[in-house]
Design a protein around this nucleic acid. Structure first.
Lengths: 143, 143
DNA sequence: CGGCATCCAACTAGATACTG
DNA sequence: CAGTATCTAGTTGGATGCCG
């Protein structure tokens, strides 16, 4: 298992000037913690997991079934990451066969709201995007 | 692998409440267009590009410099995708040396708002997440 | 400067087999 | 059921070189 070490950037990174700090309240620097967190939560499977758990508590197999295309391995990895970040809670019931529930933490719930905003935007604009793509592809083909 | 659909997917399912509908409107199916769009805009580089362009119009090289860690190849790819989706506009100035500007379209601007919500959430909660990680890692190390 | 093509290394993720 | 371990195919992405 690869619980990647939290080798974050040093806050005193000499590469950052005062000007940079000003502009990049959250910045585009590689080591930037905000950016690293964004990479994680804006992840393909994370979004789906959080959205599904926002509806109700789910078991591992339920998630695996509901998220079309995810492998057991990727689901496990995603769940561990989200758990590590304190966004979901993992509850193991000591029964046979094993039963593990996943649910959003309070922190996870606040993220859910934000994610749903993103989802809603996508829903609201998918036609525009589809149209833009058609337009783009048409021009590219002609050119 | 087609998991039995019907109850989960159908918007007209009589068993679904209005609240459920809200959630199931975009689903977790592989071919779902919403999911595919989400994968694209929730992309690592796309988020950064849109955020930076939200501030002002930028040239290719400016983007390349500001986004730490992105390669020319990936930046080009990302910009093409965003342009295809109608989120950014690409303007070629017929001068020597060539000059190409990128800026958000109206559609891109609406997405910017949404993304900034996500960014703000991350900024607001990065300490909590860092704490959660420390807690998780401590437990994992002990165990 | 902007950007495409090629090559290749590194990482990702699926399939499979196995465990408690 | 809920994972872990291993192996491998596929993809991503960096480096380089060339072109308009």
């Amino acid at each position: 298992m690869d619980v990647e070490e939290g080798t974050l950037n040093s806050p005193t990174d000499p590469g950052l000037t005062a000007c940079d700090m000003d502009i990049y309240q959250w910045d585009a620097r590689e080591g930037c913690e905000v950016r690293q967190i964004l990479d994680r939560i804006a992840d393909k499977w994370s979004l789906l997991v959080i959205s599904l758990l926002g509806r109700r508590r789910l078991r591992f197999m339920e998630l695996l079934r509901e998220i079309d295309g995810v492998s057991q391995r990727m689901l496990t990895t995603t769940l561990r990451h989200l758990e590590r970040d304190g966004l979901i809670a993992r509850t193991v019931h000591p029964v046979v066969p094993p039963r593990v529930d996943y649910e959003l933490t309070d922190l996870g719930c606040t993220l859910l709201d934000t994610i749903q905003t993103l989802v809603r935007w996508t829903e609201d604009n998918q036609l525009k995007i589809a149209a833009a793509r058609a337009r783009y592809d048409a021009t590219a083909t002609v050119g």
